[in-house]
Design a protein around this nucleic acid. Structure first.
Lengths: 194, 194
DNA sequence: GTCTATATTGAGATAGAC
DNA sequence: GTCTATCTCAATATAGAC
């Protein structure tokens, strides 16, 4: 209990920044300790392993993304509006979990080799199915082009919004929110009829 | 000299598959040796380091992608046709370098920490500038919507085509070429005027 | 050119004093 | 709850015989 925020949270935040910037495997527990201002061994008072730190960061992100996506899909029946709201909700959640999203994106291959990541991979699949379902409804309602495979568009949309984080750090003068909005507009108008 | 193909090439191919499937850092030189049918130490007769193996695989991919993109941009003046041809050329190059592309995508954070990757990162920036230039021409010619930031669209397009590789392995019954084509159509019609 | 054997390093993690 | 000190292990890479 210090600094106004408890140490455990500080470790999660700091580790998240390092993991996002340099990758999970490249970041050592010693670097995390240094950045927090504590010896690496002391981290193990709060966490059982480095893996546990990563999973806690990423699960907060994926969990919230799933909950928000579910509630959007449940509350909006018109497919195209619903799709637009899914974009907005996703952008919103990413804003609050930028490091976690970067970790998930950039270290997916690594995370997928961890048995402890299974439940999170399942949640991501759930999110993907929510999007694909909405797109499918849109196709059936005649608003979305039939050539657009729902499952594929779901991947395209979700990954693009997540990638916006990376891009907004490379394109100067343009913030993440703006980048995400442009992605949304391009992808939406690219999938709609006429 | 064996199997009709020399061992050095076999090492590159096999290592590429492993790196693409499980990540660069997760794959050990012992696993590569096992897969090739040779002891890990013997790999060092052909390469100075594991890093060198990775860089050789990825540089073949990025080099070809750069050359093809340059020649497309040089030979086609009408922006929208040129953009369409960039999509096609990129899809084409990826088909021949699937593993390399997956490595580049999934281990970018790791590669970026290697000094030896610098020149390849520069080549990728070159490719990005080619795309952005073409999009900018399209905006000025009035064919592409002004809201579409050229640099951003370049990221969106290139990353989406590369990601198609991952997606085509998840969406069953749809090959990479089809996935890449749908991406191309959605992104093109999403950025064009009217 | 491939092997056996091993050097070397750096990482995650632990034990126990304070 | 943090430190000192260290264990353990796995990975890259090397030396030298065959």
């Amino acid at each position: 209990m210090k600094d106004g925020v408890d140490r455990r949270s500080r470790i999660l935040t700091t580790a998240g920044e390092l993991f996002a910037a340099r990758g999970v495997q490249t970041t050592t527990v010693r670097e995390i300790g240094d950045a927090v201002g504590v010896l690496s061994g002391s981290l193990y008072h709060y966490f059982d392993s480095k893996e546990e730190i990563v999973l806690e960061i990423v699960s907060a992100f994926i969990g919230e993304l799933r909950d928000r996506s579910l509630s959007v899909a449940a509350s909006t029946s018109e497919p195209v509006s619903c799709l637009r709201e899914l974009f907005a909700a996703t952008t919103d959640v990413l804003l609050a979990h930028q490091d976690a999203c970067l970790i998930y994106q950039n270290d997916a291959t690594c995370l997928n080799t961890w048995p402890g990541f299974r439940p999170l991979a399942d949640q991501m699949r759930e999110i993907h199915l929510i999007w694909a379902g909405v797109v499918e409804d849109g196709v059936e309602a005649g608003h979305i082009r039939v050539e657009v495979d729902p499952s594929l568009f779901a991947y395209l949309a979700i990954d693009s919004i997540c990638d916006s984080l990376n891009w907004s750090r490379s394109v100067d003068g343009v913030g993440f929110a703006t980048v995400a909005n442009i992605c949304t507009e391009v992808l939406l108008s690219g999938c709609l009829n006429q």
